[in-house]
């Protein structure tokens, strides 16, 4: 048994909630691309048009054995296991930048397969463990 006043307030609240959810959903629909922090190599490959002038971020895993550093720059391959992009970068990389680890590169595409980075960020995954555990995991993997 709800009082009439409470009923009215409850319906106001429900209407408000539905409207807000709808409004926020539409807002994110419009913002869609801007909410993504980076694109994966597959998303770049499947996009219809690429803007070479626009500064974007791409992200994925640094492919095993792909880091080549020379005096001028460092080159590596970002992969999402399906598609790959070659990234070239001159500057210092963060301490956690390594092969087999996540990375986000900020810069410009030269074409769909080549990316010139202005900034490199290391992406940390959700795994936390002491060094000994990591070592034994590696041994088991081999």
């Amino acid at each position: 048994m709800l009082l009439k006043k409470v009923k009215i307030r409850l319906s106001i609240l429900l209407a408000l909630s539905v409207l807000s959810v709808l409004a926020i959903f539409l807002l994110f629909k419009v913002l869609e691309d801007n909410v993504l922090y980076f694109y994966s190599p597959s998303e770049i490959k499947n996009s219809d048009e690429i803007n070479l002038k626009k500064r974007i971020r791409i992200g994925g895993i640094v492919k095993q054995g792909s880091i080549q550093s020379s005096e001028r720059d460092i080159k590596f391959i970002v992969t999402d296991t399906k598609n790959e992009i070659i990234v070239s970068y001159s500057g210092t990389v963060p301490a956690l930048f390594a092969e087999g680890k996540g990375v986000v590169a900020e810069g410009n595409l030269k074409d769909k397969k080549f990316f010139v980075a202005k900034r490199i960020l290391a992406k940390h995954d959700e795994n936390y463990m002491p060094p000994e555990v990591e070592e034994s995991l590696n041994i088991n993997a081999k």
Binding site: Y37, F38, G59, E126, N127, P130, V133
Partner: peptide, 23 residues
């Protein structure tokens, strides 16, 4: 839902926890 720099949750009710016991 989106690609983020922040890592996904390590502790959840449905998935296995990815934080080592000692931590």
């Amino acid at each position: 839902w989106w690609s983020t720099l922040h890592q996904p949750a390590s502790i959840s009710l449905t998935n296995e926890t990815t934080v080592h016991f000692s931590m």
